[in-house]
Amino acid sequence: MALPRLTGALRSFSNVTKHEDYSEELADLTTKRSKLHAQLLKSDLTWKKIIKFVDDNLDKKEYQTVNGDLKTILQAAKQIVGAENGQEAIESGAVFLFKTFHGKECVGHDETKVIKQMFGPFPSSSATAACSATSRIASHFTEEQLTALIQLAEEQNGDNRVLFGKNIVFSFDMHDLDHSEELPVNGETDVQKSISLDY
C-alpha cells in the first residue's frame, strides 16, 4: 500500500499537475519485453554475419569444428526463444546468446539475469550449452577480432556514447529522521491542564 504523502495529496487535489491515468500501464512489463525482442531483430549484428565472420577468418578444417558449435548455439536459442516464434526470432536470439557469452567461461548470475529479462524463464541446460559453444568458438579468434564483431551490435545501441552528468559528483545521502533521544516525556502540559477547585 502506498505511504501517505503530502505530494500525493497535492497530485490528487490541486490543479497544478497533469492527472495521469496509470491503469493502462498494468501490462507495461509485457509491452517492454516485446519491444526488446523487436529491437533485437533490428540489430546490425545478424546470425548470418556471425557465420560469415567465422567463414572468412577460419580455414576449412577449423570451420567444420566451429560449425557444430554454431549449430549448438542455434539449437539453444530455439529452446530459449521458443520454436513457435520463427526462424528470424531464433537467429536473433542466437546472436543475443553469442553476444552475452563471448568472453565468459560459465553462465553466471549476471548472464542468467540478462537472458531472463529478455526471454523470461528458460532451461538452464540450454544456456550452459550455448555458453560452452560460444567459448569454444571464441578460442579460435583474437580479442580484437571479436570486439570488432560485437561492436556492430553495440554501435547501434549507443553503448559508446558519453552519458550526461558522467562527471557530476552525486551524493546518495538523504533526509532522515532527526535524532531526539533527549525528548522529555511530555509531563509539563499535563500539569498545566489540571484545574484547581480550591476556591
Binding site: 505530494t7 490541486s14 499537475t17 552525486f170 551524493s171 545521502d173 538523504m174 533526509h175
Partner: peptide, 23 residues
C-alpha cells in the same frame, strides 16, 4: 508539458536535497 510541476519539485527536494542541495 508538465516536465516539472509543484509536487514533482517538492519530491525532488525531499529525495535529493540532503546530499545534492547546491545542484
Amino acid at each position: 508539458n508538465f516536465l516539472f510541476d509543484i509536487p514533482k519539485i517538492l519530491d525532488l527536494c525531499v529525495l535529493f536535497g540532503k546530499g545534492n542541495g547546491l545542484l
